[in-house]
Design a protein around this nucleic acid. Sequence first.
DNA 1: GCATGATCATGC
DNA 2: GCATGATCATGC
Length: 460
Amino acid sequence: MKKGRLYNKQEIEIISKSAIGKSIEDIMNEEVVTIDNSGVNKGGLGQLVEQYLFGIQNNSESEPDFMPAGIELKVTPYKRIKGGKLSAKERLVLNIINYMDEWKNDFKDSHFWFKNNTIQLLWYLWEPNKDNKKFKITHEKLLELAKNEDLEQIEEDWNYIIQKIKDGKAHEISEADTMYLGACTKGANASSKREQPFNDILAMQRAFCFKTSYMTQLVRKYIGDYSDVEKVLKGTKDTFNQYVSEVVNKYKGKSQKELMREFNIDSKAKNINSMLISRMFNVQSKLADTEEFQKANIIPKTIRIEENGRIKESISFPAFKYTELINQNWEDSDLREQLETTKYMFFVFKKTKGEYIFKGIKLWNMPETDIETSVMEMWKKTYNAISTGNIVKSITNGIRKTNFPGMSENEVCHVRPHGRNAKDTAPLPVADKLTGATKYTKHCFWINNKYIKDLFIEFN
DNA sequence: GCATGATCATGC
DNA sequence: GCATGATCATGC
């Protein structure tokens, strides 16, 4: 009987299906294939499954796990989030990008394609406070990129990353650059750097990956919770980017009033421009909640530019939970993860002769240097205020001043209230020392209006 | 004029 | 009832 790397497609499928319902521990106990157990504890769960379920030893990484079948095996976690929905727990890390060689290839000749064009996925359900080896494999799926509806976008993403290498900008690559296929950092720390072909500056070592947001959509599609997600691309052969620019060109130059009339919206909501952009895309739900925006982790935001070029308002995030925030480190915080992987699509409304005119869009993600300096300082100060119970600094005429990092002390971001009103509160993990409060007005992180101002110079 | 605290309308 | 995207209001 053949074994290990020599299994063919049908055998891989049979073995994968046989793993469903089993925990890693179960698989290790059954151990049907002959393997060398030495060094078995080095790897993660994926490696254990490779070794015990398929009898594959750690390989050189230059080929797919199964040859000649050309199939790569990936074991990946998903989890249940609040509200019962499912979500990927991590990005799916693929092969390390060889800056010196990969640019010489076309997409279909690339090392990425050779290694990852057919992936046998095994999903296990991750649960908090549970022994790793007790996680159960619940679903499997053979992902064949050549037949995948997202292939065109994945190729576009690959080309974008390669173009940055060709432009001598490998050191400026960010995971937020692309939609589904990303380039995530890979290595022990920020000093894991590699040479690049067209620039002397060393670049962070990165690997191709399917972004967490993309993996979440796969989880919802193949495991559950998929039905209620609205698509942006309905009955069009356009790629996402093509469709976006069509929509933008169609409405560019129209005023807020004209758009309200065109879409039959009469509203005084503060997020009226946000409602308008959903309608531009013919989306019933929120644009941010559609499949394509979710998969690519793109967050649409509306921006108003005043006649003098100033942007009055900062950009809000969803309110954070005090109790959750203090259970995180900066390194694994929601905020850091979000900023590193999110791309913002700003819809610009510029005030002209008293009216806000839609001028177009601007794509942006926060540079890593800002995340690791200013944002980190702000996050840590927020953490300290909450964890030590030092939130309220003073009260005058019923108005409370806080110790949260303000706009004047951080050039990138700050913390401010975000709720229905001051009575809209969330529980505190530590009672506030000055007031004794055990709950406090909901707050969130904000990106400073001054900080983003320069992004929109082209619209002035 | 700006920084900060407070609040609004909507949709599910 | 609540989260969200966003703007308002006020004192220094």
